[in-house]
């Protein structure tokens, strides 16, 4: 467990600010833990043989695991999980065990009257290939 962090200071946020990157190395164990915690036990995530028969290189991570990393990038920066009002994006590429997913984000817009922040988000693997694109989140701080 990491320490409690203060909620981000709304006044100090500027359009164009970059969020600190979040890097995660995906393992077979993590994919299994995600399957158990989420209920999504589709065999393409758990059974190498099945995944290969489906035309994949082997088991792949759930797209929603990548989106959970992007989500964490946002909530770690905000210092609040409850402040997120929307989150969306596109799964642009497969994430395999051993891949390092690097999540990035920038402040796209700031609405002072509604205390809303809009963020642009993405994620890429260790070869720089994009795995999550067109990411957008809105938060009320």
């Amino acid at each position: 467990m990491t320490a409690v962090r203060e909620v981000v200071d709304f006044k100090a946020i500027k359009i164009g600010d970059a969020l600190p990157d979040l890097r995660k190395t995906v393992t077979v164990e993590q994919i299994r833990a995600y399957a158990a915690a989420s209920g999504d036990r589709n065999p393409i995530h758990l059974d190498d043989e099945f995944a290969r028969r489906a035309g994949l290189p082997g088991v792949i991570a759930h797209g929603m695991l990548t989106m959970a990393f992007v989500n964490q990038l946002v909530t770690d920066w905000l210092g609040s999980r409850g402040a997120v009002r929307s989150l969306q994006g596109r799964f642009a590429g497969m994430v395999l065990p051993g891949d390092e997913v690097r999540c990035t984000g920038t402040v796209l817009n700031k609405d002072d009257s509604r205390r809303r922040i809009t963020l642009s988000l993405g994620a890429a693997n260790q070869r720089g290939e994009r795995v999550f694109t067109k990411g957008v989140a809105e938060a009320e701080v």
Binding site: A33, S38, A68, N71, T75, S80, V84
Partner: peptide, 25 residues
């Protein structure tokens, strides 16, 4: 907590609130 541990999102807040992507659960 099982979800947070699985995705590695374990930062503590004063109040236990589900991560937004927990909607999938």
């Amino acid at each position: 907590r099982a979800y947070m541990n699985a995705v590695g999102d374990t930062r503590v807040e004063p109040d236990l609130v589900a991560p937004p992507t927990y909607a999938m659960v």
